[in-house]
């Protein structure tokens, strides 16, 4: 079983939520049991209760974060350093800022789990012409499709390391595309590249690189 949290309350989480919905489709296409806590449902009470009851082994966390915390709906606490015991021995991908700098390392300490996340803020450019319809925003795609690739690979049975590397490879391909825009003198190409580099450099894997999705 896979647990997803997908809060939706500002521009950033609207985009994460849309891209998370694509992963949900992929999960459903593969007939994998899933629990998706979306919007206001992505709160600490619901998620902790579900973890205690069902013990899903794979978690896909979307939202905001910092070095010691992951947040749910409306930037309210989802997980902190106090919750480490609940998160051990799991495969976790946190599409959130900075939790890879500390919290992620602590979660996998002395256990067989794996945490993929970011040691810097996860950032992306939005084209305001399409901000009401993230699917049509080709600028945001440069940043969010490589992050989705992690979950697509995990769902399809690849290891955490393979999934992490596939995502990085896609980021590099996107950097090449952005450099072509720079060659064509597209305004802002270097600014776009800078943000993608930040995500590339910040994406980290802690713990067991051989961890895989377990259909529990």
């Amino acid at each position: 079983m896979i647990l997803i949290t997908s809060p939706k309350y500002d521009d950033g989480t609207e985009y994460l939520s849309y891209y998370s919905s694509l992963i949900l489709k992929e999960i459903n296409n593969n007939n994998i049991p899933v629990k998706n806590f979306e919007g206001k449902e992505a709160n600490r009470g619901n998620v902790i209760k579900f973890l205690q009851k069902k013990n899903p082994k794979t978690l896909f966390i979307n939202g905001h974060g910092d070095e010691k915390t992951l947040y749910g709906s409306h930037n309210l606490l989802l997980f902190s350093i106090e919750d480490i015991s609940l998160l051990k021995n799991k495969l976790i991908y946190a599409r959130a800022c900075s939790a890879g700098a500390f919290l992620g390392e602590k979660i996998v300490e002395n256990n067989n789990g794996c945490f993929i996340g970011y040691k810097y803020p996860f950032s992306f450019w939005i084209d305001q012409k399409h901000s009401a319809t993230p699917s049509r925003d080709n600028t945001a795609k440069f940043y969010l499709e490589p992050s989705n690739e992690i979950m697509i690979f995990i769902i399809n049975g690849r290891t955490a390391q393979q999934s992490h590397e596939k995502s990085k490879k896609m980021m590099i391909e996107n950097m090449k595309k952005i450099l072509k825009l720079e060659e064509k003198k597209e305004p802002g190409a270097m600014g776009m590249l800078q943000i993608l580099w930040n995500n590339f450099d910040g994406q980290v894997l802690h713990g067991n690189p051989s961890a895989r999705f377990e259909d529990n």
């Binding site: 521009d11 930037n75 800022c97 450019w125 939005i126 305001q128 901000s131 600028t139 802002g188």
Partner: peptide, 18 residues
Amino acid sequence: RIEIMPPNFKLSIGNFGT
């Protein structure tokens, strides 16, 4: 660098906002 970004672009920086 910010000045040369297209006017319709916004940057989402996680917790900091958009």
